[in-house]
Design a protein around this nucleic acid. Structure first.
Lengths: 118, 118
DNA sequence: TTAAAATATTCCTTTACAGGAATATTCAAT
DNA sequence: ATTGAATATTCCTGTAAAGGAATATTTTAA
């Protein structure tokens, strides 16, 4: 997993930018407005996001349209795979305990009334 | 999305700890050894992970067993949902372009014979 | 009680980074 | 060429955070 993805997202304004850009490409000015930032700060944060590969930019006249890139999010997604595989198993003892409880509960319900389930 | 998750993971040693703990709970000393850290630094980083809710600790005699907590990873997972929904659509123009190419290709393979330019 | 092991905390120094202000750059319109 | 709008960059300063070294705390063993 690329550490720069996390450090890029570890700053509130940049995380805000990423969430804002989910709605589609925006210019620097629009981004600055939405987040209540001054233009230079917006540009600086966008540079960080750019260098981290989280966004890409397209120049249109004297504007710059920034948009999200899919790749780092996919990378994050597959990085999470390793955790998904375990977080329902031996991730912690509490989970195991809860799974046991659940199993007991199912047994009980199987003998009492009839649950409607598909 | 909780920003502290990202900032906690934005440090190489801490990311290393999280990946190391995928294998199961470990003591401070074991973690320090695996990552080539001195014990105080390991403790300090683990404290950050603890306060970020990424790990939990269980005291056993004078050892501390640290293990991953599932919740922040689940939160990350559902945060990614919003991006999964779009990263195959209008996430960027390249994708759209590639999807068009794919569509053309399918047409060709289906029997048509004239590649056209747009 | 003392000693030793494992861990946590404190203090210090250095470095990275965020914001503010000013300025440079780029582009379109005239 | 000049102007104005949009954006990028630079310089400065303050602050947060990381590592090193030393020390405090907790627990077991004797």
């Amino acid at each position: 997993m690329n550490i720069t993805t996390f450090s890029a997202l570890a700053e509130p304004n940049r995380l805000g930018m990423v969430e804002l850009l989910r709605g589609g490409p925006l210019t620097v000015g629009e981004i600055a407005d939405h987040l209540g930032l001054r233009q230079p700060q917006a540009s600086k944060h966008l540079r960080v996001l750019l260098e981290a590969g989280l966004v890409e930019v397209e120049a249109v006249a004297n504007r710059r349209n920034y948009r999200l890139r899919a790749e780092p999010f996919r990378a994050l997604d597959s990085w999470l795979d390793a955790y998904r595989r375990i977080w329902n198993e031996r991730f912690d003892n509490l989970n195991i305990y809860l799974q046991k409880l659940q199993a007991e509960e199912n047994k009980l319900q199987a003998g009492e009334s009839e649950p409607k389930e598909t």
